[in-house]
Amino acid sequence: MDPNLLKKLNAERLARRAAILVTDLSDGRDRLVREGDAVSGELGVAIEKAFRSGRSGTTEAEGRTFFLNAHLPPPKLVAIGAVHISQALAPMARIAGFDIEIIDPRTAFATAERFPDVPLFAEWPEEVLKRRPFDAYTGVAALTHDPKIDDLPLKAALDTGCFYVGALGSRKTHAKRVERLLGMGVTQEELSRIHSPIGLDIGAASPAEIAVAVLAQIIAAFRSRGIAAEKTEKAA
């Protein structure tokens, strides 16, 4: 392995950016491919697939055998709102392999007693985001119903290109939210990325059931990253 590639790879991983180390198993030569880098041919197709699935493996291309080691940042979820749904969502998300953290400036909600062992920020989202900005591997669920708390992180999530953006609320609530976000300069196209009403339609009623519906939607969004964008490109 090329020592410079190892340094670059580790730097990418620290910065929470996806990268694939491609090793030609016949001669041991390697290269680093970042997400979005253009690679042509069969190898390019395999690389694209590995970015999407996050799975490492060997692949035959151009008559050679390559090993693709996919390094995807661990997906992170941020729940805006230390609410009842979040109490169910936090342990479920962890079981499914997502790091989760919770932001809610209302100190009565954001207590360690209600959220044992979960990174919890009892501050305004604006303050937390200054120190811990979202990235493409962050999923954001706005769950407070309160525009003062939800709107800013929703806009930040759309601006950043978070892989999932969901917002709790009825269609009527969401229509009002759309008006407000348009006023904040968010485009109609970006707004269509918000999942609202939140969660897959499984008829969820209790907070725990809604958490299941939200988590399932987040997993679907994570595993199909890039596919939607591709379809749009082809259609255009």
Binding site: L6, D99, E101, L120, R132
Partner: peptide, 22 residues
């Protein structure tokens, strides 16, 4: 409570390899 990512630099073999190299 500023710990978030599951990327554990102390345990991670590739970070260890880089440190050993240095």
């Amino acid at each position: 409570m500023e710990t978030a990512t599951t990327l554990d630099e102390i345990q991670d073999p590739l970070f260890i390899a880089e440190n050993w190299m240095k």
